[in-house]
Design a protein around this nucleic acid. Structure first.
Length: 674
DNA sequence: GAGCACTGC
């Protein structure tokens, strides 16, 4: 396992560790088992630290829920949680991980025929439903952290509702940290029960509440609203540092730039404190930070030094840091929104929800009683949304729709969602899938193209291009490019914050055709036994993210296996072709092949360097990480479009010929011209 | 001209 995950994992295990007998959940054991025995659906409400994730599966196991040879599944929204929690439970049961207790995540299946309790990501359980739609191997399925309302856990709950209709023996346990419990339970009401109106006849399920074991956290609000929460966060941190007892500080900010600003301002203020003052060590934390730098936040500060961690939302649920006593909540978060009319993703800074604010405050009370300073007024808090908008209502739904169709859901519009996505999102998704040939004019999944696209763990446009690659004799190249695309711009990394070095490193691999083939060259060099040798040192020397590169190797291998099973062979010509891919022939094949997937994302550069889409007037700019940030080009296809601070950026560009667009997507462009 | 919140298959 890579360093980062080990580090984060052990932090998580530390959080979970508490002698099991002392957990409040132990007292509720009988009530819990009774509920699960009696009702198809049990919703468990319990704060972090209540032990529900580690204890409930053990109760069920010991109560005989796996005696008939079936398994207990516990789903997690994150890989790291699945691995670390399973290790903890294996230890408590005194067995080796992978025996009675195991986990299964993408690329790693640590289970055996002896496995009774299996932790897995919710996305992977969805994949299992393709093979086993009724999930027959499980007697109990526990969906943990359902309150996070992730895309895959939402869909999983919808599908479990369907499965329950066919399987009266199945038990579903939903665990939530917030007050959504009733909503979850009511969702599982059989249709006839919903007609009873106000009368609530819940013989299909029940709610069990578990006391948390976190310490109390005093909440402080501002007396009046402020304009600049960045400055206020700095002021608050400094006053905590100079007047409050020992204990580390955690500031929640919205993004990298803001975090850097806060850290710079804090650094200035530290100088003013004078040489005799207690020391303060500001540390940034966000997902894009190189692993080594992320690890600093977990290390104990020197004696007499107070850590001040300035973090994105990553510290809200994904990462747990010990020793935080003070939390400063700016009250904002950066969230994705999807504009179905333009097909653009936006990252907006928006107020947090009450659930989020509560979760943030709780980060101060893990070791001992703490304090949380909310940089907004109490009435502002009262006006916050109860919970963050579910992901399914603010995402590009093309991958979701494709996956649901492949699971046999014919009518997406009538699908029983916990919260239905806006119909515009569904329509947009269907339009795109139709233009890609995954869905026919009757709204049915096509065979084999549509089903194959759904099977590949790639977004639809990329899946389409990969499935076309064999006919362009560039499957080998496209597999590599697809694998590199899943890194989402994280192939290069600034090891010491020096962005100039990154740009220089990128130029070493650059080819005139654009970013995709540039990334292909990166992969080729990394895996070449005479060049990168898959070594971490080589990555460091070339400003590449070693962990990300290893992931690309895994993804490529997995994609390769999928295509093997589909009977699509890697072109022998491609594998042995000695032509440098930046040269004419191969490059053009790749460019054409990419066009067959990304024709709907084509644009042309104007003289001022901006881009406009076909038949549109949206002004777009090449992202600074693109080869075409500096260079001139005519037509391009792009992989991603995103609005940041009012400016629309396109990322991962490859130059194409205008004729190819009409050649490979005649229908699409005929409609466009009307 | 100047920059990805966070996950997952």
């Amino acid at each position: 396992m890579a360093e980062e995950e080990e580090g984060l994992g052990s932090a998580l295990i530390a959080e979970l560790y508490r002698p099991p007998a002392l957990l409040p959940i132990a007292q509720l054991k009988d009530a819990l088992l009774y509920a699960i025995e009696t009702f198809p659906v049990t919703v468990i409400v319990g704060e972090t630290g209540s032990g529900k994730t580690t204890q409930i599966p053990q109760f069920l196991y010991k109560a005989g829920w796996t005696n008939d040879g079936s398994q207990i599944a516990v789903t997690q929204p994150r890989r790291i949680a699945a691995t670390s929690v399973s290790a903890r439970v294996a230890e408590e049961l005194g067995c080796q991980l992978g025996q009675e207790v195991g986990y299964s995540i993408r690329f790693e299946d640590v289970t055996s025929d002896k496995t009774k309790i299996k932790f897995l990501t919710d996305g992977l359980l969805l994949r299992e439903m393709l093979v086993d739609p009724l999930l027959k191997r499980y007697s109990v399925i526990m969906v943990d952290e359902a309150h996070e309302r992730s895309l895959s856990s939402d869909i999983l709950l919808s599908l479990l509702k369907k499965v329950l209709r066919a399987r009266s023996d199945l038990r579903v346990v939903i665990s939530s940290a917030t007050l959504d419990a009733e909503k979850f339970l009511e969702f599982f009401a059989p249709d006839e029960d919903q007609n009873v109106g106000g009368k609530f006849k819940a013989d299909y399920g029940t709610i069990v509440s578990i006391e948390g074991r976190t310490h109390s956290v005093d909440i402080f609000y501002l007396p009046s609203p402020i304009n600049n929460y960045v400055e206020k966060a700095v002021d608050t941190a400094m006053s905590i540092h100079t007047s409050e007892a020992d204990g580390d500080i955690l500031i929640f900010a919205t993004g990298r730039e803001e975090i850097d600003d806060i850290i710079d301002m804090i650094a200035d203020r530290i100088v003013d404190l004078g040489p005799d003052a207690k020391r303060l060590q500001p540390l940034p934390l966000y997902a894009g930070l190189p692993t080594e730098q992320q690890m600093y936040v977990f290390q104990k500060a020197d004696e007499g030094t107070r850590k001040l961690i300035v973090s994105t939302n990553i510290a809200e649920a994904s990462v747990t840091i010990d020793g935080i006593i003070y939390v400063i909540d700016t009250g904002y978060v950066k969230l994705r929104a999807y504009d179905p009319a333009l097909g653009i993703e936006r990252l907006n800074v928006v107020p947090v929800s009450k659930a989020s604010a509560t979760q943030r405050a709780g980060r101060a009370g893990r070791t001992r009683p703490g304090k949380c300073y909310r940089l907004y007024t109490e009435s502002a808090f009262d006006r916050l949304e109860d919970a963050t908008f579910p992901e399914i209502q603010r995402s590009n739904l093309a991958p979701v729709v494709l996956q649901l169709m492949n699971l046999g859901i014919q009518n997406i519009v009538r699908f029983d969602f916990l919260d239905s996505p806006p119909s515009k999102l569904v329509v947009r998704a269907l339009d795109l899938l139709f233009s890609l040939g995954a869905v026919d004019a009757y709204g049915r999944l096509t065979k084999p193209l549509g089903t194959r696209m759904a099977e590949l763990p790639l977004e639809p446009m990329l899946a389409r291009a990969v499935l076309n690659a064999q006919s362009f004799n560039c499957l080998s190249e496209m597999l590599t490019i697809a694998a590199m695309m899943t890194l989402q711009g994280n192939a290069f990394v600034a090891h010491d914050g020096n962005q100039k070095l990154v740009d220089r490193a990128r130029r070493k691999f650059a080819v005139k055709e654009g970013d995709h083939i540039t990334l292909y060259n990166v992969y080729q060099s990394f895996t070449n036994s005479a060049v990168g040798k898959q070594s971490s040192q080589w990555c460091r020397d070339n400003n590449l993210n070693y962990k990300a590169m290893l992931k690309a190797v895994s993804v490529r291998k997995q994609l390769r296996n999928y295509l093997d099973r589909m009977g699509i062979q890697e072109n022998t010509l491609a594998g042995s072709d000695a032509i440098r891919v930046g040269g004419m022939e191969m490059a053009e094949r790749v460019q054409r092949c990419l066009t067959t997937g990304f024709f709907a994302q084509a644009a042309r550069m104007k003289t001022d360097g901006s881009f406009v889409p076909v038949g549109g007037d949206t002004v777009m700019w090449a992202h600074p990480s693109s080869l075409f940030f500096h260079r001139k080009v005519d037509w391009v296809i792009y992989h991603e479009i995103q609005e940041t601070k009012g400016k629309i950026y396109i990322r991962d560009l490859t130059s194409v010929e205008m004729d190819w667009l009409t050649e490979y997507a005649p229908e699409y462009y005929k409609v466009k011209q009307r």
